[in-house]
């Protein structure tokens, strides 16, 4: 906590996708499928890729689609996280909000 650094300002959105280093096998399939080079291979062979240009991310999800290990999570920016309302109870939640209900819909997309 006590440390402070002179670093460049953060860019926004700051974290568009993140990689779980525990699951990642460093195969770079994600970096090969990123049109904007937002994710780049780690120069250290076998290590997790680096999310270097999040300010260029298109939120296309092609990296997630390409990952054989399900290691990538998307973080949709705050300005996209809308509300939804449970019709019966009238309860209102926000996508990614603090009180979001547990997942109850598990059908895969069609095709």
């Amino acid at each position: 906590m006590a440390e402070a650094y002179l670093v460049p300002n953060p860019i926004a959105p700051n974290q568009t996708v993140s990689i779980d280093a525990e699951k990642c096998i460093g195969c770079n399939e994600c970096t090969r499928h990123c049109r904007t080079q937002t994710i780049m291979p780690n120069p250290e062979a076998g290590a997790s890729p680096i999310v270097i240009y999040p300010d260029e991310c298109w939120f296309c999800g092609c990296c997630i689609d390409a990952c054989p290990k399900g290691a990538i999570t998307m973080h949709y920016p705050i300005n996209q996280r809308v509300f939804f309302k449970r019709k019966e109870s009238g309860e209102v939640y926000r996508i990614g909000g603090p009180d979001a209900p547990p997942q109850t819909y598990f059908k895969p997309p069609v095709g």
């Binding site: 298109w58 939120f59 296309c60 999800g61 997630i64 689609d65 998307m74 949709y76 809308v82 509300f83 939804f84 309302k85 449970r86 019709k87 019966e88 939640y93 996508i95 990614g96 909000g97 979001a100 209900p101 547990p102 997942q103 109850t104 819909y105 598990f106 997309p109 069609v110 095709g111």
Partner: peptide
């Protein structure tokens, strides 16, 4: 069928909203 195959929806919308608890059978979207 539509949201799920449309560009930029499979992960950013379909998967993301489902995981965030949205359920089209019971919920309405703003």
């Amino acid at each position: 069928l539509m949201v799920g195959n449309e560009g930029r929806t499979r992960y950013a919308i379909y998967d993301y909203y489902n995981k965030a608890g949205f359920n089209p059978d019971t919920d309405m979207l703003m």
